[in-house]
Design a protein around this nucleic acid. Structure first.
Lengths: 123, 123
DNA sequence: GTCGTTGCAAAGCGTTTGCAGCCTA
DNA sequence: TAGGCTGCAAACGCTTTGCAACGAC
């Protein structure tokens, strides 16, 4: 069972306050102000436990370090702005994904990443 | 100007024969049979040069080490086998990608990754 | 002969693990 | 008090770099 330690409260607090997916390094930097002396190993161990328990989900984009966010969101994809590097959630899903699967292969899951410029950066 | 060495011929040969994106480790293993004593550093250096010269393109999948394939292919996506971890090329492309883009955003590119089991692993 | 290229080993870098002491329940 | 949790440092796996020898042109 998981214990409610000062360090884990700091990590949860940082993730909640940021409101966007954070990398382990970002989590460490932000949590450090809430729990002095917090070690990197603890950050990694906490992330791993929270992902395994379903509290967090990993957001992995091609060529990017993994980020983590609160779990429980609906099926969605991501839009990666090439200007500000921010990641946005995208509603919906292509409905003809199945037609791409080669003969003999079985499809279990899929990921779609859109690249371009977000509304804020287009101005 | 690039020189035509035994090692680079081996790497090109391995990539061509495989016909699918290869990781640096895979390239090393396959090229070693063509050029005894080939070092890992040479593989990385060659890959870097070939990508910079436009001969190869990187295939970066979420949470995976980068793989490389010959450049100049027509538009395609990838299938990632969860059993053998190999990556295959997939023909075609969802035709309603545009409908996912949020209002005000401009779409420049996209990536689709399919996950499941390949024909070889299903047997 | 030049100088780009190679193999080896060492160095980086981000992540994981071993361990003794700490602290939550 | 028990045993999960933590910080530190060492270990790891993958990639890059330094360097002297090698070899394509």
């Amino acid at each position: 069972m998981e214990r409610q330690t000062r360090q884990r409260k700091a990590i949860r607090g940082a993730l909640h306050q940021a409101g966007r997916p954070l990398s382990p390094t970002e989590i460490h930097a932000l949590s450090r102000t809430r729990s002095r002396g917090l070690g990197m190993a603890t950050v990694y161990r906490s992330i791993r436990l929270m992902v395994e328990s379903g509290e967090l989900v990993a957001v992995e984009l091609p060529g990017e370090p993994p980020r983590y966010e609160a779990a429980g969101k609906h099926h969605h994809h991501h839009f990666h702005c090439r200007s500000c590097r921010r990641v946005y959630e995208v509603e919906g899903c292509p409905d003809d994904i199945d037609s791409l699967v080669p003969t003999g292969f079985s499809l279990e899951d899929h990921e779609v990443v859109l690249y371009g410029r977000c509304a804020a950066c287009r101005r």
